[in-house]
Nucleic acid binder design. Sequence first.
DNA 1: GACCTTTGTGTACGCCCGTACGCATGCCCG
DNA 2: CGGGCATGCGTACGGGCGTACACAAAGGTC
Lengths: 194, 194
Amino acid sequence: MPRPRRYDPERRERIVDAALRVVRRDGIGGLSHRTVAAEADVPLGSTTYHFGSLDELLVAALRKVNASFAGTLRARTAPDADGLARLLGEWLGGERGQVELEYELYLAALRRPALRPVAAEWAEEVTAALAPHTGRSTARALVALMDGIGLQVLLTGTPYDEEYAREMIARILHEGPKEQAGGLSEAPVRPTGT
Amino acid sequence: MPRPRRYDPERRERIVDAALRVVRRDGIGGLSHRTVAAEADVPLGSTTYHFGSLDELLVAALRKVNASFAGTLRARTAPDADGLARLLGEWLGGERGQVELEYELYLAALRRPALRPVAAEWAEEVTAALAPHTGRSTARALVALMDGIGLQVLLTGTPYDEEYAREMIARILHEGPKEQAGGLSEAPVRPTGT
DNA sequence: GACCTTTGTGTACGCCCGTACGCATGCCCG
DNA sequence: CGGGCATGCGTACGGGCGTACACAAAGGTC
């Protein structure tokens, strides 16, 4: 009688949200069926029922983050050095917890093959958003560079330097904006596995 | 009588090596005082004695990886686009386990402040190795770009494309090799915290 | 050679974990 | 309207975890 709540179609969704809060607070290491059940205020059995493994839950969580990120990105498209450097700065300047969360889930794909297709989707999505203005190769490099700069800021504690980021983004952009498709190797980003 | 082995001055070192093997095999998630004790064939108490916390052990492990990496890097200095792209390719083409190990320890600094100074040391070391030929800003950007490219390869499963890497490295290098110190913001990489 | 300090070891405790499995619940079909 | 069945829940089990702590062994000091 404590929990008569049956037929709750948003259950699954609420569990994913709870998982995101847990990871934000305690990192992936702190994620367990129990912690997420407590956070979502659902019984333990419910999480194991909806998500057979933690990997499954992480996949759903990363997908959700991706979707929200892609939304923000597309809304604010300004694919020149100024715009990208400012975007990076705003992102890094936001709540540290959120940035850590997004990086942590993304980087988790390093060790969890199940997450790789989702990470690949993310990279592809961002690349695709930039590619119309810059060409695919350049877009991929921009993603790599900005990833790398963001990581350096977070991993080493160096403060973000927007001027510097703008200059380096400009170098990538400058030499080959709008390079014709095929100018460089254009192997599409393709997910591993399934 | 099972373990009369006392006064073993290399004990600490062997524990660190064992930790590296464990992380390589099972990831940081698989690291515990117990697993590393088993791997090093020392009693449980020994690991907790030498390393009060897992963070301490990780710091020692990351330092060790850094040292070996820096050695290889300095031995093979060829700071032009060809050389760097080839170096990255060789590194990524090597045993996946080793590459994963190094990235995983480095990236762990995202969530573990204790590792950040060590990650910062690594970044600084690599930057310093490149800086004499390229200037500091450019060197930092090269590290960021190469980090980012490597990550994309590992996270998404895209195969490494040396041609593409060479081109993008060249773009960073081309516009400002040997820029005079101070030409761009040159805030030194400084560790957070202690 | 007898203390005492430092160094290292073994064991035991309480906690949290994933998983399995039996049971309550609410729908569907006859 | 009543039995059967899928869905969802709660609990209990075995195992691994970090940590604490009492104790053995070795070094140093007189």
